[in-house]
């Protein structure tokens, strides 16, 4: 802990003020506002909001569209995360062997981090379009076999692939950094004992990576709840027939297209609680239990 400080003066407060002011106006106030809206209903002809208790939540939770949105969000979150992490873990482990071309591989796997979600969505919309994309061959043989603009589950598969693709780079960066922080003496000791590279991957590196795996799992799941908006908006627009209407997308369309602020606020609260619970798990559980050093 630090022992030497500067004498407390108005400077300390002055330096702190801008940040506190900004997070008050743009973070705490809106969050509190969301809670207020979630428990009130705006009068149709103006005149303020009336308190309605849990009615907004009851409406949402009895709406089958909401539950299908929750379901597809969970499927998307788990599938995209598993795919992205699986792939980046394998790639990071093999890149970490540092054979010839190691630096080139590393750069090539990192840059997709910089691509905006809507750009990924638009590119994947082209790639998987039924008329001229990579599956257009299939449609010339059996017309209508592949069409994510009409067939729900194919649209879901498409957003999962796009989401997973977008997250590979992020996970890869963390896995590679974690692998490179494994002490060389450990690897050498294992090699001395006759463990070949593949055996070391399974018995040495993988267990040492557990904290990173958990960390990335939570981060990726959280991200897939929030960051998916751009992908869905340009890739499917929530369709076909609401098949890809993820939670964050539904908040947007209910709030800004349907002008149902109270309903959107209640949905925001549910999503907030979900994201906060995940973050909480991250801080409490993961950082304490899974630690090997």
């Amino acid at each position: 802990m630090r022992r030497a400080y500067f004498k407390t003066s108005w400077i300390a407060a002055l330096l702190l003020a801008p940040q506190l002011l900004i997070i008050f106006v743009f973070f705490y106030w809106p969050s509190a506002q969301a809670v207020y809206w979630a428990f009130t209903l705006e009068q149709p002809w103006g005149g303020g909001n009336t308190w309605v208790g849990f009615d907004n939540f009851r409406n949402i939770l009895s709406d089958p569209y909401y539950w299908s949105s929750v379901r597809v969000s969970l499927i998307y979150a788990v599938a995209a995360t598993a795919l992205a992490m699986g792939m980046s873990l394998i790639l990071a482990m093999f890149v970490d062997r540092q054979l010839a071309g190691y630096k080139a591989y590393r750069v090539a796997l990192i840059w997709p981090y910089a691509i905006a979600a809507p750009a990924v969505g638009l590119a994947f919309r082209f790639i998987f379009n039924p008329n001229a994309g990579i599956f257009s061959y299939v449609n010339t043989v059996i017309p209508g076999l592949w069409d994510p603009t009409q067939i729900g589950w194919q649209a879901v598969v498409t957003i999962i692939l796009a989401g997973a693709w977008k997250h590979v780079a992020y996970s890869f960066i963390f896995f590679l950094a974690a692998l490179q922080s494994i002490p060389r003496s450990l690897t050498e000791a294992a090699a001395m004992d006759g463990a070949r590279p593949l055996r070391r991957m399974v018995d040495l590196q993988l267990p040492l990576l557990t904290p990173t795996v958990f960390f990335l799992f939570v981060i990726n799941i959280t991200d897939s709840f929030t960051d998916s908006f751009g992908i869905v908006d340009t890739l499917t627009g929530g369709g076909p027939f609401r098949a890809t209407d993820l939670m964050v997308y539904k908040i947007y369309s209910d709030g800004f297209r349907g002008f149902d602020y109270s309903g959107a606020a209640a949905q925001s609260i549910i999503l907030m609680v979900l994201v906060m619970a995940l973050t909480f798990v991250q801080f409490r559980y993961v950082e304490r239990r899974v630690h090997y050093t």
Partner: peptide, 24 residues
């Protein structure tokens, strides 16, 4: 306390509280 006040903002990305932030 201030540290935690700032820290909590990491938990909720802009997308989650988009409707009220728009109102602000």
């Amino acid at each position: 306390l201030i540290f935690w006040l700032i820290f909590i903002t990491l938990m909720l990305p802009l997308e989650v509280r988009i409707v009220p932030t728009y109102a602000v």
